[in-house]
């Protein structure tokens, strides 16, 4: 019986990802990150723009996140809710989980510059590191939501990272390409999911809720 409860809970959570809009939005962020990292290495060193880009990284991420969130809400209201109905989810408020996630994030973030400093060859492995890290995030998303597409994206992330590192495209150039590849894969996967969602779910007739 416990499995049946869990199946209903999982199906409810999965309904958030059925329309593919989350992947499209996240994919757009990764494409933006790819362009951002590429800008850092492609711009001439004499220009002050690369330094400006480096220092503005945090703000770029926050701004992009807020913008994508707004767009996602707008699209959900226009596309998803009239077809599948509206649902909002309880926010995770477990302080222990938040603390664990924060500590893991901080340790991972701090370890990258340290590893780059002390292990020179680590720079060549950056895309593989990035690929594994994002692969783990997708695996967590997949196990939480039960969406099989995220398992595929986790594999794409890991394999793309390894392939780039093996091809000798390391450092920021490799990370930039990895982000762009993963972003493109996510947008394509999201668009495919959206097409299926639109075919399966016709817009509900606008009639009052109750008889």
């Amino acid at each position: 019986m416990n499995d049946e409860f869990k199946a209903i809970e999982r199906r409810t959570v999965r309904s958030f990802y059925d329309d593919g809009l989350f992947e499209i939005a996240l994919g757009a962020i990764f494409l933006l990150l790819g362009v951002y990292f590429f800008g850092e290495i492609a711009l001439p060193e004499t220009s002050s723009l690369p330094m400006f880009l480096s220092s503005a990284f945090f703000f770029v991420i926050v701004f992009a996140g807020l913008l994508i969130n707004k767009i996602l809400r707008f699209l959900k209201q226009r596309i998803t809710y009239p077809r599948a109905g509206y649902v909002s989810f309880r926010k995770e408020r477990s302080p222990k989980r938040r603390l664990t996630a924060g500590v893991i994030g901080a340790v991972t973030g701090a370890s990258i510059p340290v590893l780059m400093q002390f292990i020179p060859s680590f720079r060549d492995m950056l895309p593989a590191f990035n690929g594994f890290l994002l692969g783990i995030v997708f695996l967590l998303l997949a196990s939480k939501s039960g969406v099989a597409r995220y398992f595929v994206l986790a594999c794409i992330s890991a394999f793309a990272g390894i392939a780039l590192a093996a091809a000798g495209i390391g450092d920021i150039r490799g990370v930039s390409l990895h982000c762009a590849l993963l972003g493109a894969a996510m947008v394509l996967s999201g668009l495919a999911a959206l097409i299926v969602f639109l075919r399966r779910n016709k817009r509900a007739a606008e009639v009052p809720d109750e008889p």
Binding site: T12, V13, G85, Y86, V87, F89, K91, D209, E210, P211
Partner: peptide
């Protein structure tokens, strides 16, 4: 109740689709 234990709130259409119940 199981759906609403995960969801903060849900509208009539969502609940109807997920439960398979009639409107009444």
């Amino acid at each position: 109740a199981t759906i609403l234990s995960v969801a903060e709130s849900a509208d009539f259409l969502f609940l109807q689709r997920e439960t398979g119940l009639t409107k009444g």
